[in-house]
């Protein structure tokens, strides 16, 4: 009886203030979409970092067959040169900087190249001889890239020393900026949502002053009087959160996985699974939003 009564009161309230309820749903939808997008961007960043950032830091590319670099005047790097560089990397002088070194032969480079671009027409003509061997160096402190670069740039048999982090840094920077922007928008939108829910509940309470007045008079408890209003806000906000989750899932599924992942292939992407990880938090945020708003607005309008 009680539950049924509270629910029916809630639906009456939602129906009477339908346009306000819809606006609450939309504002929560948009604001939580931004919150979720910020979270997913961070997930994407950590995905990229996990995959690349920590594994490969500095790559010393050795001379390929026909490089025009002066250090490669002797043609392709000889085994002696390779050994010499290897020894230097393991020498005491560099030991404090170097964490791990591994050597990638031309053949290995070719295999991983083939694996990644197996379906691309332009990759079909590439041969193993066109690839170059390289030393991959993991540093104790990734910012000490300069030490390696100074030692090996200009060394005979070395084509180029590349800090691989530099490739990812612009990407991560973009992602971080995007996170900031969507986070900032999220804050503004959340504020708007809170104010809107507050106003909606207040309107709803005012339009039912007569009922609540009688309820107080005949001795209904505070919770009983306030619950329908709270539920109204919570339901609208929850629907908004649901839409936000749906929107994010749609975005990840069709924008990231179907489009980005097929056109820019060298980055590992987040999947729909990440959306489901974010979803409970969005839902909790919606409920928290509604709870705060109702506390603020109901204190004044339905006091005993």
């Amino acid at each position: 009886m009680r539950l049924q009564f509270i629910l029916s009161e809630m639906f009456v309230g939602l129906r009477r203030n339908l346009s306000m309820a819809v606006s609450v749903i939309l504002v929560t939808f948009v604001s939580l979409t931004f919150v979720g997008a910020a979270a997913l961007l961070q997930a994407q960043i950590s995905q990229v970092k996990d995959q690349w950032y920590d594994k490969v830091e500095v790559t010393i590319y050795l001379c390929p067959q026909d490089s025009e670099k002066p250090t490669c005047a002797g043609g392709e790097a000889s085994q002696a040169q390779i050994d010499e560089i290897g020894q230097k990397l393991h020498s005491d002088a560099l030991a404090p900087y170097v964490k791990k070194v591994y050597f990638e032969t031309k053949q290995q480079a070719y295999e991983s190249f083939e694996k990644r671009y197996a379906n691309e027409w332009w990759a079909q003509s590439v041969t193993a001889d066109q690839m170059q061997a390289s030393y991959r160096v993991a540093l104790v402190d990734p910012s000490q890239y300069q030490v390696i670069s100074d030692t090996f740039t200009g060394h005979t048999g070395v084509d180029v020393v590349q800090d691989q982090r530099k490739v990812f840094e612009p990407l991560i920077l973009v992602l971080n900026r995007a996170t900031l922007i969507s986070g900032g928008l999220a804050v503004v939108m959340l504020l708007a949502a809170t104010l809107l829910i507050t106003t909606t509940i207040r309107l709803s309470a005012m339009s039912r002053r007569r009922e609540t007045g009688i309820m107080r008079l005949v001795g209904a408890s505070n919770l009983f009087i306030q619950l329908p209003f709270m539920l109204e806000g919570a339901i609208a906000a929850t629907i908004g959160a649901g839409l936000a989750v749906g929107g994010l899932w749609f975005g990840v599924r069709y924008l990231v996985q179907d489009w980005l992942a097929t056109s820019v292939r060298w980055i590992p992407y987040i999947g729909a699974g990440d959306v489901w990880t974010v979803a409970p938090f969005l839902l909790a945020a919606a409920i928290l939003l509604a709870a705060i708003s109702s506390l603020v607005s109901l204190g004044r309008y339905t006091k005993v």
């Binding site: 009922e211 009688i214 005949v218």
Partner: peptide, 24 residues
């Protein structure tokens, strides 16, 4: 009087019991 205009006589009186959680 302070009656609820959109409720019937029965519902108006029942309202007082519903809101204090009396069983049906």
């Amino acid at each position: 009087f302070r009656l609820l205009p959109n409720k019937t006589v029965f519902e108006n009186v029942a309202f007082a019991l519903q809101v204090i959680g009396k069983p049906r």
